[in-house]
Design a protein around this nucleic acid. Structure first.
Lengths: 150, 150
DNA sequence: GTTGGCATGAGAGTGATTCTCACTCTAGCA
DNA sequence: TGCTAGAGTGAGAATCACTCTCATGCCAAC
């Protein structure tokens, strides 16, 4: 995914979201979004800078933090010393992560609706029983990817 | 949990695990394990040092890294600037995490066996389809805890 | 063209974590 | 008991991902 997305809609939707929060969709923020969309999977900040060499580190971090604040980007902190960044789910689709314990690669994966619904019901029950108001969930499946399996 | 555990077994099991890897179960490592067991939930390093004030920061970090290497301790990096540490599942029981997005509190939660089995089956299918050999999974349920809900 | 306000980016600063190194402890041996 | 080798310890220095600062750039509205 990523390259095949209706990019116009993507950018329009993000611009609207930023506007709601009194923020502008500047060239720098757009470049960050473009890089994330082009990657099509969670990537680190060094990777992001490699995808678009015109980005400055400090500005990339700042743009990401603005985009995270308005809910356009999600920050993952599973593994390794760098955080991973990806576009938020409302811009892509609800998905989870397959993480290679050997090389750290992260791949998106979607589960059948039936399973998601069942999980949601269960999570609601157990969370409520413990006094939590559940909002969303994340599933990480750890294993070994194809290239790391001998 | 924690205080009610059969501590003797816990320590014997950890000593054995360390021995397998050519490591000793030293007083410092035991103190770290004790602090984690006493906490009964994932805690940060500063919390660990607060639980047992005789621990030195650098030694605590090193002991944790040894314990993580041999699979006795697990490191979580959900939220905030400090990592969270907890005893590995084979010493406690298979569980997941309920995370308060407001205050960062993390609480253990177990799911019904039926649900775990169903998830395992699904995860196996989708992971295998993408060339992954799945080993284990983690579910994080994000929401608001009782004290943060108005 | 000027003014005000936000965005940018280079570099300094911050802080969690890791590394270094001198010291201590322990096991094994005679 | 004394000796030695090796591993463990802890105080402080070093590292490095990330954030903050501040001088400059850009743009919209008069």
């Amino acid at each position: 995914m990523g390259a095949d997305l209706p990019d116009i809609d993507l950018h329009r939707s993000i611009a609207a979201r930023l506007a709601e929060h009194g923020q502008h969709y500047t060239a720098n923020r757009r470049a960050v979004v473009d890089a994330l969309a082009r990657a099509g999977a969670p990537i680190t900040l060094p990777d992001l800078l490699a995808v678009d060499e015109s980005l400055a580190q400090s500005s990339a971090y700042r743009s990401l933090s603005v985009l995270i604040d308005v809910g356009v980007v999600r920050r993952l902190v599973h593994v390794g010393d760098h955080a991973l960044f990806e576009l938020a789910e409302h811009l892509t689709e609800h998905h989870h992560h397959l993480i290679c314990e050997s090389c750290g690669t992260v791949v998106d994966v979607t589960l059948p609706d039936r399973v998601e619904a069942a999980m949601d019901r269960t999570f609601d029950e157990v969370a409520t029983a413990l006094g939590f108001a559940p909002l969303h969930h994340a599933v990480d499946i750890y294993g070994t990817c194809a290239t790391c399996t001998p």
